[in-house]
């Protein structure tokens, strides 16, 4: 197994070449950094590569820039790689169904097919709980099977199809696990956190209903550690889909208030009925609009669509399979967020 990359030829028994796709986003960056830190901590010689259009600017990682739509770039990206963590996806509201199909389904197919051919042994497919969501509220559920027919919207539909495709390729020599982090947030989060704070500062952030719906979220470092844990535990995790959260469901109103406080914005006080928001449709979308082209799991859309209903999960199986527990509590996460903004966390 040789490739153009000179580093890849220097594989040692205690080092792996790991490719992270979509490392320009908050979670992709956190995953790459976690892998680098893990390697250093364990005295290993892992090499971390990233794959996205732009520069990742992650210290210690090597960029292999390109697009999932470019077969040549994909082949080059997986060359000499042992393990792939696939986060890159099209998440925006905008765009035609075909674009989502191309990036999320065909892009995944292209990447995994190339990876298998290149001799990659392990793949962690980063997915979303929305792939299995066909009801309104989720109360302590596990990870149901992905269902493109029932998933709501192009993103969830195409991610569901991609997850089925990825897990369908799972075999003893090419192990695939799906990890579904739910609503990832943290410092540097341009989607959830910055939008909430910006809207709250301009006084245009309403709460839906009483704001009491319980929502599970995932602090970014926990999502990253769960994904790296999946790589460690491929023996147990392959072939499965696992929802990952902080395991601390909180009322959505409290979360929003906590983020606002951390960001130095006033707590929203305006309540509007959820049915009205849903009927109007655009109210929420205007609040949560995501810029096109960002390669991130779509926590914003998922949250915005169903901000007024419960979404929390039974984490027992996930924690057992991954032998993992979140290290950063929500309160600690909010403190870090406050420190990031240079503000003060309230309460």
């Amino acid at each position: 197994m040789t490739g153009a990359d000179p580093d890849a030829t220097n594989l040692t028994r205690d080092g792996m070449n790991i490719l992270v796709t979509g490392a320009s986003g908050m979670l992709g960056r956190a995953v790459a950094e976690a892998l680098i830190a893990r390697s250093a901590k364990l005295g290993r010689r892992d090499r971390v590569y990233t794959f996205q259009r732009g520069a990742s600017s992650i210290e210690g990682a090597q960029d292999r820039r390109g697009s999932l739509g470019d077969p040549g770039a994909v082949e080059r990206a997986v060359d000499g790689i042992d393990a792939v963590i696939h986060l890159a996806a099209k998440v925006s509201f905008a765009g035609e169904a075909e674009e989502f199909d191309d990036v999320n389904i065909e892009g995944t197919r292209r990447l995994l097919t190339a990876a298998r051919q290149a001799g990659v042994s392990d793949v962690v497919f980063v997915s979303s709980p929305s792939v299995a969501h066909h009801g309104w509220s989720i109360v302590g559920d596990g990870a149901g099977p992905a269902s493109p027919e029932h998933a709501r919207g192009n993103y969830a539909r195409t991610k569901a199809a991609a997850e089925l495709l990825a897990l369908g390729m799972d075999s003893p020599g090419f192990r695939v696990a799906a990890v579904r982090p739910h609503i990832v947030w943290g410092p540097g989060d341009t989607q959830l956190v910055e939008r909430v704070v910006a809207r709250a500062k301009s006084g245009r952030l309403p709460l839906l209903d009483s704001g009491a719906a319980l929502i599970d979220t995932t602090y970014v470092d926990n999502a990253a550690s769960a994904i790296t844990a999946a790589l460690n535990r491929m023996d147990h995790a392959h072939g499965r889909a696992l929802v990952v959260t902080n395991g601390e469901p909180r009322p959505v109103g409290e979360l929003i208030a906590g983020i606002c406080a951390a960001g130095g914005a006033p707590t929203p006080t305006r309540h509007i009925p959820g049915w009205l928001a849903r009927a109007a449709g655009s109210v929420i979308e205007r609040v949560w609009t995501v810029a096109p082209g960002e390669d991130e799991p779509p926590m914003t859309r998922f949250l915005a669509e169903q901000l007024s209903t419960a979404h929390w999960f039974d984490q027992r199986q996930t924690r057992q399979v991954l032998d993992w527990t979140p290290e950063v509590s929500i309160d600690e996460g909010l403190s870090r967020l406050a420190a990031h903004y240079g503000g003060r966390a309230s309460g």
Binding site: S210, A212, L214, G274, S308, T309
Partner: peptide, 10 residues
């Protein structure tokens, strides 16, 4: 509580 926290009416 289950109803309220599932997003039901307060």
């Amino acid at each position: 509580a289950a109803e309220v926290l599932a997003g039901g009416k307060m």
